Computed example of a mutant assay.
Amino acid sequence: MNVQESFNKFIKDSKRVLKVSRKPDKEEYFELAKVTSIGVVIVGVIGFAIFLLASLIGL
């Protein structure tokens, strides 16, 4: 498969994805925002715990 064929396949696949996709409604958007926020908080807590543990050990 050459570069031109790869590019044409990418354009064709991109058009198909844009046809199928839709804009999320308000409820779905806020649910996604909550889940993302919870994930950020969890990663932050884990990072802080590792930092605290490392500082107590003296690394």
Rank of each mutant, 00 (worst) to 15 (best):
K26V: 12
E31Y: 04
D13C: 06
A54H: 03
I57R: 00
G39F: 01
I42A: 11
A54Y: 10
G58N: 03
K34W: 09
R22F: 00
F10N: 04
S37H: 11
E5V: 02
K15Y: 05
E31R: 04
L52C: 08
R16V: 10
F51K: 01
F30Q: 08
A54P: 11
G47F: 01
L56R: 03
K12R: 15
V41D: 10
L59N: 14
D13K: 09
V35L: 06
V35T: 09
V3C: 05
G58A: 00
G58F: 00
F10C: 02
K12I: 04
S6K: 14
L56Y: 06
I57M: 01
I46T: 11
M1Y: 15
V3W: 10
N2S: 13
A54K: 01
N2Y: 13
L32T: 08
T36E: 14
V20F: 02
I50E: 04
L32Y: 03
F7I: 05
F48N: 08
N2L: 11
V41F: 07
R16I: 05
K23T: 09
K9Q: 15
L18I: 11
E31V: 10
L53A: 08
K26I: 13
I57E: 05
V35F: 01
F48S: 12
S6H: 14
I38C: 09
V35N: 01
Q4G: 10
I38G: 06
I42R: 03
V17F: 02
K12N: 12
V41Q: 08
I46L: 09
L32M: 07
S37G: 11
L53P: 11
G58P: 05
G39S: 01
K23H: 10
G47I: 05
L18S: 07
A54Q: 04
T36Q: 14
A33Q: 15
G58Q: 02
S6W: 13
V3Q: 11
L53V: 10
S21A: 03
V20H: 02
L53K: 05
K26Q: 06
Q4S: 12
N8R: 12
K19N: 12
R22G: 00
I11T: 05
V45G: 03
K12M: 11
I42K: 03
P24I: 00
G58T: 00
L53S: 08
K12D: 09
A54I: 13
I11D: 04
F51T: 12
N2K: 13
K15Q: 08
V45Y: 02
G47N: 02
K23N: 08
S37W: 11
S14D: 08
I38W: 08
K23L: 09
Q4H: 06
L53Q: 13
S21P: 04
E31C: 01
K12C: 10
V20Q: 04
A33K: 14
E27Y: 04
S14C: 00
K34M: 05
G47L: 01
A54R: 00
R16K: 10
V40D: 15
Y29P: 13
E27Q: 03
E27F: 03
D25I: 01
K26G: 06
I50G: 03
E27H: 01
K15W: 02
K9I: 09
L56K: 02
D25E: 00
V3G: 04
A49I: 13
N2I: 03
D13G: 04
V40W: 14
E28S: 10
S55D: 15
A33R: 15
